[in-house]
């Protein structure tokens, strides 16, 4: 009856958001008087998996098959469904991210489970099994009640604060026989973005829009991002005119992000842009136009020319870091 949680890792390093998923699972396990079984797929060292105990997993099931180092959603599904059946699990948890979104619905279909995509709360058991999620691109929230016996939850990353315990997990190795169709998709080339912080995982983001005037000024955005340890993003016009790559575009038709801090520079704040960033915990807007609609959605605002404000802000961050070390 354990709560099953899928753990993601990059080249053997467990992602922070997966620790968050394990901690989330542990809380639900406590609510439902059971334990957490974390599932880790692919090549990873035992020492790394032991850390899952610190976030509430009591057991780790490791399937070391190195074909699982890449996302093969049907193979991941086979693994999770096998384990869920063996443990008679009623709750299966993944993240609401690229991997989770490819796997969780398949698991749900096989187990006839209702899905919550992008959970923002623990289940309210007094109302059944109701979980809060964002709808209408952040303009409202819905409480989704899962009616089926088995439940599949995709947790929105960066929703809960991590807190480490001294808990321990036992590691169990398993082999699962996969079928050919579990690996039906052949990966012919991989282009990992290295040396920069992945936008979807970033807790701090600096983003630029048309107000940056041209690609020659983008260095100012990068300077601030580097000083903060932040990822960079952009608005749609910037991506459409190819100043910046499409994967940096956030907004209705680009990516959706929910960082702790979103600094928007020279972005007017059209509703389509807000749809991609309104889950950010704190929003800072820097814009020369005091009437820019983005100021209404911001926590902090600076009215001024980006080219003048950015170097000052970067310098202030640098000074702050020197004082706090």
């Amino acid at each position: 009856m354990s709560v099953i949680v899928l753990v993601e890792h990059t080249g053997g390093n467990i992602k922070k958001k997966s620790f968050e998923a394990v901690q989330y699972a542990a809380q639900i396990a406590q609510q439902t008087a059971t334990t957490v079984t974390a599932v880790v797929l692919g090549s990873i060292a035992d020492a790394e998996m032991e850390a899952l105990g610190n976030y509430g997993a009591s057991k780790v099931i490791h399937i070391a098959d190195n074909r699982l180092d890449e996302l093969h959603a049907r193979a991941y599904t086979t693994a999770l469904v096998n384990i869920a059946r063996a443990e008679d699990s009623k709750i299966i948890i993944t993240l609401y991210d690229i991997n989770g979104r490819a796997v969780a619905p398949r698991v749900a279909a096989q187990l006839k489970a209702g899905i919550v995509a992008g959970a923002l709360s623990y289940p309210n058991l007094e109302k059944g099994f109701a979980i809060k999620k964002s709808v209408f691109s952040g303009k409202a929230f819905a409480w989704v009640n899962v009616l089926s016996d088995v439940k599949v939850i995709m947790l929105m990353p960066n929703t809960f604060q991590l807190s480490k315990t001294d808990g321990k997990a036992t590691i169990e190795k398993q082999d699962i026989s996969f079928s050919e169709k579990d690996f039906g998709i052949k990966v012919t080339a991989v282009n990992k973005v290295t040396g920069e912080i992945a936008l979807t995982d970033a807790t701090l983001v600096v983003s630029g829009g048309r107000g940056m005037k041209g690609p020659e000024n983008w260095g100012l955005i990068e300077d601030l991002a580097k000083e903060l340890g932040a990822a960079t993003a952009c608005s749609r016009p910037v991506a459409d005119t190819h100043w910046r790559p499409h994967h940096e575009h956030v907004g209705q038709t680009g990516g959706t992000i929910r960082p702790d801090l979103y600094i928007a520079v020279g972005i007017s704040g059209a509703i389509q842009h807000l749809a991609g960033v309104n889950g950010s915990k704190t929003i800072v807007v820097i814009n020369s136009d005091p009437e820019a609609p983005f100021f209404k959605a911001a926590n902090y605002g600076v009215v001024g020319d980006a080219m003048a404000v950015l170097p000052k802000l970067t310098a202030a961050v640098k000074k702050f870091k020197e004082q706090h070390h």
């Binding site: 819905a142 089926s148 605002g301």
Partner: peptide, 26 residues
């Protein structure tokens, strides 16, 4: 269906933007 929406909520209104002078980034 395997799920049903029990209720909706609107996000809390923003408290309003706090403006900081461009000369006072500290």
């Amino acid at each position: 269906p395997l799920t049903a929406i029990l209720s909706y909520e609107l996000p809390p209104a923003k408290a309003g933007v706090k403006l900081v002078s461009a000369d006072n980034m500290d």
